[in-house]
Amino acid sequence: MSQTDSVDSLDLAGVVPPTVTAFDETGDVDLDGTAAHAQFVVEGGASAVFPLGTNGEFALLTGEERRRVVECVTDAVDVPVIAGVGAPSTRATVAHADHAASVGADGVVVVTPYYYPLDDEGALTHYRAVAEAVDVPVYVYHIPSRTGNRLSLETVEQLAAIDGIAGLKDSSKDVPWLTQAIDAAPELDFLVGSDSLLVVGLELSCTGLVSAVANVYPELVVDLYDAHVRGDDAEAKRLQSRVLDVRSALKRGPYLAGVKTALSLRDVAFDVGGLREPLRTMNDDDHAALERDLRALDLLD
């Protein structure tokens, strides 16, 4: 399948929440809660979902758990599912990608291999192997602050020439890098992965928003995207400011704890539980502070 066919078949744009993995009270994966959260963001206007990203705690799951999450989310929603399949090794990444494609994922998201340093040729070989292994679009996931590996602009340009590489999700928060990457590979679909840069990303011609805030308030980020599409720049910027307020509130307490706590405060009809150790949930003080913040923003009933 050609790169153009891949992009056209998926038509990925709009708000793409990096959905959470729910856990039950024993710490096991709760597939019903995981599926319910994916349905929740779709009902809130998300145009696609991205399970097993950072918010999905993918690195803390076993291979079997990862497979079951992809299966339950693809069964649960009727929008495109781009499943996170990244791993430190190419062999494991290809295996995850092959499984995701076989159970109905519409695309796969491949974080740059982490822990070991990766040179340009290693990155190209890695992504080429994944693209050759599956017949669904492959999205590169660039988050050097977590992986320790940063893609050069020359590598991005060469990645764009590989059949099957359809886009790149950038969570580097490096606007000059993103600007130059889009210029180097305009044929790719770029997704901005930082809530602080949603409007900036759209103005740079990113097609989609991978937003952690959208895991809790999908309608807010969808409204921002819609305002941009209709050319209402003032409203888009106003909503970006509101997203920043929510983002600041969610960042209280331990890493990643804010999203799941806020979902419980929002009184949704499902439970996503806590985080998997060694990640920690919020203590009582942080929980109360988050609730105060969200009430002050008039975002709780």
Rank of each mutant, 00 (worst) to 15 (best):
S102P: 10
T179R: 14
E203D: 15
D106L: 01
D170L: 08
V138A: 11
G148S: 10
A184E: 09
L151T: 03
A184S: 13
V103K: 10
P186W: 14
D183A: 10
I182E: 02
V200P: 07
T147C: 05
S194I: 00
A166H: 12
Y127T: 06
Q180T: 04
V130K: 07
G167Y: 02
L159M: 12
A123I: 03
A129T: 13
D135L: 02
V140E: 04
G164I: 13
G164W: 13
E132T: 00
I182F: 01
K173I: 03
I143F: 07
L197W: 02
G122V: 03
I162S: 08
S172E: 01
D174V: 08
A123N: 03
Y115G: 01
D163M: 07
V136I: 15
G104C: 15
P144I: 05
V140I: 14
N149D: 09
V134S: 10
A133W: 09
A133H: 07
G107F: 12
S152G: 08
D195L: 00
A129D: 09
L191E: 08
G148C: 09
Y116A: 15
G107H: 11
E154Y: 07
K169H: 14
E157H: 06
G107M: 09
Y127C: 07
L188P: 06
L197A: 02
E154I: 03
T155K: 11
Y115W: 10
L197R: 05
E154G: 14
F190D: 01
A161C: 13
V108R: 07
